[in-house]
């Protein structure tokens, strides 16, 4: 088996907020165990609000109030034989691995480049401190060479973010995330705001860079068409839980969980005109999730047991692992 680089075990976390003197607990991540391998593109899919971004914050070591971990662990195997527990790491330890080992492209990050700093200044602000003793002139050269791989000319370094198109800004953030050659790149909806032409180009560049530099990509997007073309393996999230995981091919061709089956069926193809069915009901309110399997109120095949007991992932004949009593 290929080497593991990041592992989460039984992870449970909630947002705890106070409202009108009452505590409100939004149970966003529920018993999530993932094993992510070196050099793979691991996709995390799931509908809006299911907890994808929250899960990323936890595995990137960005857990801050009101987000609170109840149980479980996240381990990073950057240093062989000496796993680092990201939930227990000190601020210095986390600072030490950020950018150099794990970098995180946040959702909407192309809009958070500092608007009054030229692009090169953002590289100085974020990446330069992690480059050891490199002279600034060498750093500038390496940034220039690096951006060239992303098809960005050197005049970009002296531009302000608003002077660049969305696609260029997103390539800049990808450049920032990869300049220190980290072992893991966590990317949250990196191409969601981009149009089809730029999306395809950006994904192509991400994939090429990954082949050249050999890092792991954890790619979060609700867009299954992106996963279909990028990911080696996929985890499907539903309401804070992992409903199913498997190789991209198996997830698309032999989904075993009724939720995954629904997602694959509802994929739009150009040429479709029929009205697609959608699931009854809405995703649960995570402040008050249903007992048992969180999907059961919307599941077309639920049985009594589903309302009482939460299923755990089990291997299915199609090659995936699904959290469903009825999957086989």
């Amino acid at each position: 088996m290929t080497e593991e680089i990041l592992r989460s075990t039984g992870l449970r976390a909630s947002y705890i907020t106070h409202l009108f003197g009452m505590n409100r607990e939004v149970k966003v991540v529920d018993d999530v165990s993932l094993s992510i391998r070196k050099n793979e593109v691991f996709g995390i899919a799931g509908e809006s609000g299911c907890g994808k971004t929250t899960l990323l914050k936890l595995i990137a070591g960005f857990c801050r109030p009101p987000l609170k971990v109840q149980s479980g662990s996240v381990e990073f195997m950057g240093d062989p034989g000496k796993p680092l527990s990201l939930l227990e790491a000190t601020d210095e330890e986390l600072y030490g691995i950020r950018w150099r080992q794990i970098s995180y492209i946040m959702q909407g990050s192309m809009n958070v480049l500092n608007p009054v700093r030229r692009i090169y200044k953002s590289f100085i602000d974020f990446a330069y401190p992690h480059m050891g003793r490199m002279a600034e002139k060498d750093f500038r050269d390496s940034v220039t060479a690096h951006l060239d791989k992303l098809r960005l000319g050197k005049e970009v370094l002296d531009s302000y973010p608003h002077e660049l198109s969305g696609g260029m800004r997103q390539r800049v953030t990808i450049g920032l995330a990869t300049i220190c050659s980290p072992s893991i790149i966590i990317a949250d909806e990196p191409t969601t705001a981009l149009d089809v032409v730029v999306q395809r180009e950006t994904l192509g560049l991400m994939k090429r860079l990954q082949r050249e530099l050999g890092h792991t990509i954890i790619l979060v997007t609700h867009d299954l068409a992106v996963h279909a073309n990028m990911a080696d393996r996929i985890a499907i999230m539903y309401a804070g839980t992992i409903a199913e995981e498997g190789s991209t091919k198996d997830i698309f061709e032999a989904p075993a969980h009724p939720y995954t089956q629904h997602l694959i069926r509802s994929l739009p193809h150009i040429g479709d005109k029929e009205r697609k069915g959608y699931l009854k009901g809405a995703p649960p309110n995570l402040a008050d999730p249903p007992a048992g399997c969180r999907f059961h109120p919307r599941c077309p095949i639920a049985i009594a047991r589903c309302a009482q007991e939460a299923p755990s992932l089990k291997a299915c004949s199609g090659g995936t692992r699904a959290a469903c009593f009825l999957a086989d």
Binding site: S165, V197, V198, Q199, L203, G204, F252
Partner: peptide, 27 residues
């Protein structure tokens, strides 16, 4: 025609990401 060709097909590995699509560089 370029737009229609660039739309990702939601089937595993169906769209070649390798050949650089002709996206623009800016304004």
């Amino acid at each position: 025609q370029l737009l229609v060709e660039s739309a990702l097909d939601p089937r595993p590995g169906s769209t070649s990401l390798a050949d650089g699509a002709a996206a623009t560089t800016g304004d």
